[in-house]
Nucleic acid binder design. Structure first.
Lengths: 113, 113
DNA sequence: TTGACATATTCCCATATAGGAATATATTTG
DNA sequence: CAAATATATTCCTATATGGGAATATGTCAA
C-alpha cells in the first residue's frame, strides 16, 4: 500500500509545508488565490491545487466574488489535530521536569570541584 | 517532486494513522515492540518500520533491555505540532461564536411563526 | 463576440511510500 | 557452538504524490 491520500484527513493535508503556509496566511482573514500566489511566491496552479486539497478535507471555505475566489481558513478542521497533540501535553511537562531535575542534580554534583 | 519524506518532520511522521496509534500507546509508558505488535495487531516488521520513522524524527526514544527494545514517546517532538495548531485556537472560538450567533438569530427570526 | 483576467484542471514524471514476504542481526539460553 | 527469541532490514510493488507546462473554465469589459 502507498501512503494515505493527502485528502484523507487533516493530518495528511497539513503534512505539506506549503499548505501550512497557506493556512497561516488565511488565519489573518480572507485572501484571493492571487494574493496567496504573490505572498507565498508559488505558481498559481500550485496554489490552486493545494487549496483544492485543503478544501477537500474541510480546512478552508471559499466564496466567489466576480472572477476572484476568496478563501478563508476553517479552523474547526484543525481542532482534531490540536486535541490529539494536547493528549501529550502532560508528558512533555513531566519529561521537561525530569530533564530539569537531572540538570540541577548534575550542577549540585559538580559544585564540589 | 513527490511528497516530502515521512522522516522529514513530525507533521509528516504523524500523518500516518498507525504511527499515531503507536504514539497513543507509548503515551502510557514504555512498551516493547512485541507489546505494540500484540496490542495494535500489526505485523512485527510493520511496527519496527513505523518505530524507525518515529525515531528518525525524534518522536520516540529507545532503550535496550536484553533482547527487548523498549520504546517511549518523546512528547517534546509533538510540541511544535501543538504550537502550530494553537495559533488557530482563537479562530475556531470566533467562528463558533458566529455560528452560534447565527443560530440564535435564526431562532429569534422564526419565533414569530 | 472578442479579449483580458482569475482560477482550476489535466498530463507527465521522479520519488517516496506502506505492507507483505523473506531475511538479517542481536541476545539469551542450553 | 546451536537453537530460540526479539527486533530490524531488505526487496518488491501498487499507489499517490507535487511541481512544471499546457490547457480548460469562468467572469468581466468593450
Amino acid at each position: 500500500m502507498a501512503r494515505a491520500a493527502t485528502t484523507s484527513d487533516a493530518f495528511n493535508a497539513v503534512a505539506e509545508p506549503r499548505r501550512r503556509e497557506i493556512l497561516d496566511h488565511l488565519a489573518s482573514g480572507e485572501h484571493s488565490v492571487n494574493d496567496l500566489v504573490i505572498r507565498l511566491r508559488l505558481e498559481q496552479p500550485s496554489v490552486s491545487k493545494h487549496l483544492r486539497v485543503l478544501r477537500d478535507v474541510g480546512l478552508v471555505r471559499v466564496r466567489r466574488h466576480g472572477r476572484k475566489m476568496f478563501y478563508q481558513a476553517n479552523a474547526e478542521g484543525i481542532r482534531p489535530l490540536h486535541e490529539w497533540t494536547k493528549t501529550f501535553e502532560r508528558l512533555w511537562a513531566h519529561q521537561l521536569t525530569r530533564v530539569k531535575e537531572r540538570a540541577e542534580q548534575k550542577a549540585r554534583d559538580s559544585s564540589g570541584d
